[in-house]
Design a binder for these strands. Sequence first.
DNA 1: CTAGGGTTAG
Length: 482
Amino acid sequence: MLDCGFRPDDHIYPSAMKACGMLSWCEFGRSVHCLALKTGFDGDVFVGSSVVDMYAKCEEIRDARKVFDGMPVRNVVSWSGMICGYTQLGEDDEALRLFKQALWEDLDVNDFTFSSVIRVCGNSTLLELGKQIHGLCLKMGYDSSSFVGSSLVSLYSKCGVIEGAYQVFEEIPDRNLGMWNAMLIACAQHAHIRKAFDLFRQMESVRMKPNFITFLCVLYACSHAGLVEEGKHYFELMKVYGIEPGEQHYASMVDLLGRAGRLRDAIAIINEMPIKPTESVWGALLTGCRIHKDTELAVYAADRVFELGQVSSGMHVLLANAYAATGRYEEAGRARKVLRDRGVKKETGLSWVEQGNCVHTFAAGDRRHPKSDEIYRKLEELGEKMERAGYVADTSFVLREVGSDEKNQAIRYHSERLAIAFGLITFPPERPIRVMKNLRVCGDCHTAIKFMSNCTGRVIILRDNNRFHRFEDGKCSCGDYW
DNA sequence: CTAGGGTTAG
């Protein structure tokens, strides 16, 4: 067009920008942006908004912000684009700050804006803030949108309030695929397996066509319940719907079979894959190996990961832990040394609990919390009760070679226990204690928390890196399969 | 007379 001597106008620039953003063609986008500046279109709100979006999609958020700040006129699209840009990069704080500023400046936010900002709350498990924004949404009449609805379903689910997710789902009868998928994944995370299968049937009966994400959701549900046959059924069903299984579906199947102890079947799936197995596929196998203590196979899988030339810290930790779990501390140490030499950091285990507008975070053995003394006293006191009820600490989950006293100490103060104790001394008895953790809960803590729920009569909801555990009356919703 | 920019689910 330019070669033919035509000049782009205020309609053409946004389209060109959109294309650059979708392709992540940052440099090309920058040139078009320059041309818009030179030809005097930079003051146009459509052009400006599209430039903001283009830079945000190219992960050049600072350039996006520079353009945003320089816009003479901004509207709801410009604000939403900027907020959404921050959410896509995981800059949750900045997204929320901007949203607040938009409200402060009396700008009308709409369903686009709400959907983005609710997602932020979900990602950061900010239940209280999320609820407030949900309320605002109702007040402003944006609560019937499927986009807002799926963000809300996901928010409540991620924050451990599955009832809230169901309620939002029921209240929005006009559901699109994203909303069904959000509800499905919520069921999977909370181990409401029959409900997940029900939903899938309902989708079929209302002729909502599942997509590749839908199948990831149901496979995930099967994996969490150890339902191998059902998983195979859905995997086969993909063909009927004409959906080619991707890397993630294979990883899911390997995860399902591996967790269920069918490690040979898992290997068979990998061998039959028409595409090259990726790190996540081998990672799923490693997880199965760890659970079922098959160190030989774990080493084999780890070797394959090394061949891919990729290093992610989780992968090395899996290998190191596989060695340690069978008492081969020397090799575990060697694996850790590889981690250190390559500068890979193991993620610190953290647990957090939300109270009002605060998030209280704990690490294992942490004494930094102002209420530390009270928390540890609570754990001591509760520990005695638990032991009288039959709890015995299982120190095989301590993955370091230390004396048994030290092991006992290490395991008593894992981060989730500190967070739960904080909840016990802070929240009224009828309120469930919701704790989030970034790593997998260890077997001993899982047992201990069952005793805790029994000895205190409290409902404890713990999210680990993978799923939710709901402890009540000495039992866990995962049925001890996780 | 028409036309352009921003969202969800893993």
